[in-house]
Amino acid sequence: MAGFLASLLSTVVVSHSLRRRAPWPLSGGTYRASALASAWLTSLVLFMLYVGRRAPFPGMSLAIVGAFVGGVMTTSTAIGLIEDNARPSPGVRDKVLTYHTFGSLRYPPSPRLKRTLDITLASLSLILTLPLWFVIAAAIWFEEPGPIFFTKNSVGLGGVTFRQFKFRSMVHDAERATGPVAACVDDPRNLRCGKRLRRWHLDELPELLNVLNGTMSMVGPRPLRTVMVQRILEELPGLAERHTVKPGIACIAQIEKYQMPATERLRLDLEYIRRMSVAFDLRLLGRAVVTTVRGTRRDA
């Protein structure tokens, strides 16, 4: 524990000192170098204290963890822990809501026990994958020190915009030059670890929190960004029908393809809504796991 605290404090002190004295904002590489230097120096001191004995591997491991936590604390105060994508303007949100308020939409009742299934599976998944969250967070931060999480402003039940939680898989402020654009399979904005996160859908693990707070379900139409939905609705008003149920982590469209035209996505989402049941959800979740592990999903 001493190694953890020493490494954490030294990382925070060094990083904050550099921030105060540097005439320009620190780069991600500087934060990473501070954390690695603190971990190395703390581990060296621990090793020297235990010369002649068995190397204190747990102590050095805690020193590395402490340096990482200290680095995250520092970048969180400077940049933030969560990167929020460009929020849609009130006008865009109102336009999306209009398609759901004044249309003749029918909201089907949620199947019995669906919410119970969501809470149970999300809770179990969260407990089982929690150790992996720390590994993913470390991979993201050490590649590009900065926010670890990312939120998408997406359309949920009834056309209401909500914050969809994800692990950050792209470079920080990826849309500064392009504005809101859809991601593609080999998007050059992806982090190196981000490519693997997206390949195995590990960037979607924080969506379990959305399931627990009730904005998403384990199975349902994949949520789309509000700005994208507003553009599609102008050409395809029927897209609003997919928002008559909660969006989900897994869906028919996601299982079959990475990308597809809005009309095809709507067709598959309406098929899910028509067949929606707890048993069907379990079948789709099983297919989603198999598809992800095998990598058999088509790109387009």
Results as ranks from 00 to 15, higher is better:
A2R: 14
L5Q: 02
S7T: 07
L8I: 08
L18A: 08
R20T: 04
G28W: 04
Y31E: 00
R32K: 13
S38F: 00
T42L: 10
T42A: 11
T42V: 15
V45G: 08
L62D: 07
F68Q: 06
V72D: 03
T74E: 12
T75M: 07
T75E: 05
D84V: 14
A86L: 15
S89D: 13
G91C: 05
D94C: 05
Y99T: 08
H100D: 02
S104Q: 12
R106D: 13
R106Q: 14
R112V: 13
K114D: 10
K114W: 04
L117H: 04
S125E: 12
P131H: 04
W141P: 03
E143Q: 08
G146R: 10
K152Q: 15
N153G: 12
G158A: 09
F162I: 06
R168Q: 09
D173R: 15
D173I: 02
A183F: 04
A183Q: 09
R196T: 12
R199V: 10
L202Y: 10
D203G: 03
L208T: 12
L212I: 14
G214V: 01
T215M: 13
S217R: 05
M218K: 01
G220V: 12
P223Q: 13
R225L: 12
T226H: 10
Q230P: 00
E234Y: 00
P237S: 03
P237W: 02
R242C: 10
V245G: 10
Q254D: 01
I255F: 03
K257N: 08
Q259Y: 11
Q259G: 09
E264C: 00
M276C: 11
V278F: 09
D281L: 08
L282P: 02
R297Y: 00
A300F: 06
A300R: 11
